[in-house]
Design a protein around this nucleic acid. Structure first.
Lengths: 235, 235
DNA sequence: GCTTTTGTACCGACTGGTCAGTTCAAAGCG
DNA sequence: CGCTTTGAACTGACCAGTCGGTACAAAAGC
């Protein structure tokens, strides 16, 4: 029950490099990458906050509770972030950045010059998103709940432009390459796929945590490129 | 600023008709069907609450604000629902019921005995969901945000069993009829489609309110039964 | 017919508690 | 040494829920 654990560091214990703690001239804030003292405090606060907010929502989660779960004094929260809102904004931005990285990496990792390869890239991105939200489940819940709230516009704009942009770009390329029907509304399709994967990822964590991820992925890819209906001829 | 006003009676001075207001012997609560005075008050409270909660979230929305927007005194809220939570639970249940009705009606309205017709039924349900959330946008936001919160389990169980059940049943029938691949995980697929449509419906309302619904629907159905990738042959 | 009673629906000032954010002196750490 | 954290007390706003009361219509007495 105590808060001693501290440096547990979620999964991958890899140290993240030299930890220069460079100071942004613009904001006066220290960049504080994960290695430094301050960076570690922030990391712990993010972790505690995202857990609690996923369970209870933003307003219902008190700063005291976040501080306690992070094993940190309340004053530290305000020293580091200035306000509860700023903490949450940072949390959103941080998570969206990591999500975008994960998706972009998946997009780049698949070669893109064989026939049908753009659709294969799409599958890879879906898998990456599924894996990401499988690992950061609470963040998925928070994102889903806050995604359309006007309050966090800046973060949401980045989500759309960056993370959803990865999908949209690949879809556009696929259209250009003739792999997908000309005139497809790639913006809507990107949102659709993203929302679909997000929902399914959360459902799996909440209801079927031991269903293999690959099976879920298989169902989704079937759904996406139509192996689902071999027949298919409405009208 | 004084408190004299009293009998102001907000807007509509019309007397509300016969208003049977039958009393349930079991609960002692008045049934309060939509026509009655109480029913109308509750309706107004639902409407006000769903709007505010969609914008700000459950905890951030005060009972005072709900009462004010509904044109009702704060005491009336507690007279009618007993607590803020009960009001919200009622709101969720009410909305889920209507959603389920809308989906079930769409499912029934399409005949189910021509080849490919189950997939056509699927399209009809998607359209019904799209229309429903287009009309009740704030409810869509609330549902998305609260869908996985443990606090409202009862409502969520009903959502899964009833509303998602409509999808799952049709998918099962389609598998049985050979229209969809044997062994498809219809539970996951149902969640996937539901989440996809929900996300897209909200995005449309928030970002492209005048994009025709039919176009969005077309994109989604393409996505679902694979007209999206005519080519498609990864690996 | 008319008053009196009864029950429902609603009102809004008030209360007791909660919480974001502040302050500050005294450590800890690099 | 200077940046970071601690811990605890404090404030001022805010809020869910309460409670004594009003309004009014329909039944019950007279």
């Amino acid at each position: 029950m105590s808060a001693k654990t501290a440096n547990g560091m979620t999964a991958n214990g890899m140290t993240v490099g030299s930890a220069t703690t460079e100071v942004s001239v613009v904001t006066g804030m220290t960049k504080a990458e994960p290695g430094g003292r301050r960076g570690e405090t922030r990391q712990r606060l993010y972790l505690a906050a995202v857990d609690l907010i996923a369970e209870q929502g933003f307003t219902a989660t008190t700063v005291d509770a976040i501080a306690e779960r992070a094993g940190v004094a309340k004053g530290t929260v305000f020293y580091n972030f200035g306000s509860k809102e700023a903490l949450f904004a940072g949390l959103l931005g941080h998570g969206i950045q990591r999500l975008t990285d994960a998706l972009a990496e998946a997009a780049q990792a698949t070669p893109a010059d064989r026939p049908g390869s753009r659709v294969a890239t799409l599958d890879a991105i879906v898998l990456a998103q599924l894996r990401f939200f499988d690992e950061y489940g609470p963040f998925a819940r928070v994102l889903l709940a806050e995604m359309w709230r006007t309050a966090w516009q800046e973060a949401i704009v980045r989500l759309r432009e960056d993370a959803l942009g990865v999908y949209e770009r690949v879809l556009d390329e696929a259209v250009a390459a003739g792999e997908l029907r000309e005139g497809l509304d790639t913006g809507t399709a990107a949102t659709a796929i993203f929302g679909m994967v997000l929902t399914v990822a959360i459902e799996r964590r909440a209801l079927h945590p031991d269903r293999p991820l690959d099976e879920v992925h298989a169902t989704l890819t079937e759904l996406i490129h139509g192996r689902i209906s071999g027949t298919a001829d409405p009208r």
